[in-house]
């Protein structure tokens, strides 16, 4: 089963629940096996697998709930009162755990696009294939996702100082 650990990691990031992630990975492999003839040789296999995983998740109750905020920028954080860019003053002492907690706070559509790009190191075309969106949308969503993440990190930094 190729990409097993990577898919499970992504599934858990997506669902935030062990049992749901396990069911999701299981169903993804079943569907991938049955749908393999529809896979186009030469295209990114990981992106294809992730698309199956994501589409399967979006048909579940948890997925439908997560998908409600798909087109919104609904990240409620107070912007830090400083002129510094968030990363400059924050990353000097940021811990991995803080980044993980910040990722968990992001809406699903922001979290997944950051993970596909930064963790899975997919290019924009592959991310577009995985999420079934055009490259222009990949770029704009990624921009908004990273901005939201920086704001959350900055807010966490200011909370730690207070």
């Amino acid at each position: 089963m190729p990409h097993f650990a990577s898919l499970y990691n992504l599934a858990f990031w997506l669902t935030q629940d062990r049992a749901t992630a396990e069911d999701l990975v299981q169903e993804t492999y079943v569907k991938a096996l049955k749908g393999f003839p529809s896979y186009h040789q030469g295209t990114n296999f990981r992106a294809w697998m992730y698309r199956i995983l994501r589409n399967t998740f979006l048909t579940t109750q948890a997925g439908l709930k997560a998908a409600v905020s798909l087109d919104s920028d609904d990240v409620r954080v107070v912007e830090p009162a400083t002129d510094q860019t968030p990363e400059v003053f924050f990353l000097t002492r940021v811990e991995q755990e803080t980044i993980r907690r910040t990722l968990e706070k992001l809406p699903m559509h922001f979290r997944e696009i950051i993970l596909l790009c930064d963790l899975e190191e997919m290019n924009y075309k592959e991310v577009g294939l995985a999420l079934s969106i055009p490259i222009g949308t990949v770029m704009s969503r990624l921009f908004r996702a990273r901005k939201a993440m920086r704001l959350l990190l900055a807010a966490a930094s200011q909370g730690a100082k207070a």
Binding site: N9, Q96, R100, L103, L119, M149, L153
Partner: peptide, 21 residues
Amino acid sequence: LARLRLKNATRIAAADRFVPA
């Protein structure tokens, strides 16, 4: 440079975060 560091830190923090049973 700051954005590159955040990108790298994200990759390191998210990689193998959840390990299957």
